[in-house]
Amino acid sequence: MSTKVAESTTSVGNASPEKVPTLLSRLLGNQQFLLLIAFIVLVAFFTTRNSVFLSNGEFANIFADFASLILLGVAETYVIATGGIDLSVGATSGFAGVVAAFAMRSMHGSEAVVLIVGFLVCIAIGALVGVVNGVLMNYAGLVPFVATLVTLGAAGGMSIVLTGGAPIGNDPNAIATTVSIIGPFSWPVLVVIAITIISGLYLHASRFGKYTFSIGSNEFASRAAGINVKSHLMKVYVLSGVLSGITGMFFYLRLGSGAPTSGAGAELSAIAAVVIGGAQLSGGSARLSGTTLGALILTTVTSGLIIMNVQPNWNQVAVAILIAIAAGFQTLRPSKRKK
């Protein structure tokens, strides 16, 4: 009997024969590829405007900017893949940097030990904010937007209250440790790149990543398949907090102090990088390579405009235009999904 059924359902499957797409149409339908082209065009454009752009020093700057953005972009990619949003990443990074700066200021030890403690404090603070986000969603029933708006306000406000608005600590030695080691890459930039690659592997090839996407794609189906949705979401928001905390330490290393406002507004750039990278804000579909290219494009444009002596306020307009273009591409492309 099974053969009879098999035969006829086969014909269901074959009802829409698969077209073999040409290489060109495949590439043009691939957002990653288009982003890569856009990135190369932007670099070429800014270089023709001012040859300083392709210099080592400027690349070091771009990578440092990129590094302060990409971990928040990674955090936001995971969260958005679940169909959520984390508005607290920027404020959390500033808050973590401030608390870590207090801890490091009170220490007397070798610079390496002090910085390691700083990292651990940042990770702990970030994880704490993530837990609070998870509890507000899982137990108080808040939607992600509201829960993370609460922690955005709380973390941002506490940073100001604790510091009185002024940066904490004065640690030129910390900055000095970040001299470049391989070409334009300082050690923090290399650490950030390593974290980004590992996060990408986990998002796209591990069980953790699979559940992240399945929850964003259909929460009921995920629960019905035996996945503990609440516990998974808690882990994702804690991961987001930890990455924000590490970003806070990165800010500290660039400034030599913990500034309460250092992450303010960074969540918007991070979300912009994810959107430019082609993720669906409704969840279920995102690519970390896309977010990475999105962050690279954002930082390239920002640096390029500075080099061209464009007034900094135009920056936000440029970012807005990039988001609009990326969103336009998503609606123009033949839709791969219907929900």
Binding site: S214, N218, F220, A221, A225, G226, Q280, G284
Partner: peptide, 17 residues
């Protein structure tokens, strides 16, 4: 629907297992 549309058929068959 008990399926996650953004996942492959194979991932859906093995979802949770």
């Amino acid at each position: 629907s008990g399926l996650a549309p953004d996942l492959s058929i194979g991932s859906n068959v093995f979802l949770g297992r």
